[in-house]
Amino acid sequence: MKKIEIFDPAMCCSTGVCGPSVNPELIRMAAVTENLKAKGYEIIRYNLANEPHAFAESPIISKLLNEKGPDVLPVTVVDGEIKKVKEFLTNEELQELTGLTKETLAAKPRIQL
């Protein structure tokens, strides 16, 4: 299985439900991330505000940030290769990458309390 790393810009949380307005793209990515984890995929999201060391320790991300600045975020890296910059992979792109169905990717994750 592929290793997927998402390097998010600095934000208070990865879900998009905090702050003055809700970002539906962040909500979509939070759900997709949980769905991929549930299917056994190694998917990690790093937040620049909380995990700057992950950005500094990744040679390709560090180089990209030095050359283009933080406006290039979010960046998606798959198996060590940059797949997309400035926006998240779409569900269709993730479907091609993983072979999972649209329904599986878009399902509301079940979280036990």
Rank of each mutant, 00 (worst) to 15 (best):
T101I: 04
E42C: 08
G80W: 04
D8S: 08
N50P: 08
L94M: 08
P9M: 07
F55C: 00
I61R: 01
S21A: 15
G19K: 09
T90D: 08
N91G: 10
A107G: 05
I44N: 11
P24V: 05
A56C: 12
E25M: 03
N50W: 10
E96C: 10
K63S: 07
V78G: 01
G16M: 08
K2T: 15
K102M: 15
A10C: 03
E87Y: 10
Y46S: 10
V17W: 11
E34K: 14
M11N: 14
I44S: 10
Q112C: 14
F55S: 02
Y41F: 06
A49P: 05
K2G: 13
R45C: 11
M11Q: 14
P109Y: 03
A10I: 03
N23D: 03
A54S: 06
L113T: 15
S62V: 06
P59H: 12
L65H: 12
N23E: 00
M29P: 06
S62R: 10
L94P: 07
T76D: 02
G16N: 07
E103C: 05
L65E: 12
G40C: 04
S58C: 14
A56V: 14
K83P: 00
N66T: 15
V75A: 01
D79Q: 07
P59G: 10
I82F: 04
A56R: 11
L73H: 07
S21F: 13
L113H: 15
A10P: 03
I82R: 09
E51D: 11
M29I: 12
Q112S: 15
L97W: 02
I43E: 05
V77W: 08
K63P: 09
E87N: 08
L64R: 07
M1S: 09
G40W: 03
A31E: 12
E96Q: 14
L94E: 02
Y41W: 02
E25D: 05
D79Y: 07
L105Q: 06
G69F: 01
N47V: 01
A30E: 15
E96V: 11
R110K: 15
T104I: 15
T104F: 05
N47G: 01
N91W: 13
I60Q: 04
T33G: 04
E92C: 09
P52W: 06
L48C: 09
P20M: 12
A56M: 14
R28C: 01
K108M: 12
K84L: 06
Y41M: 04
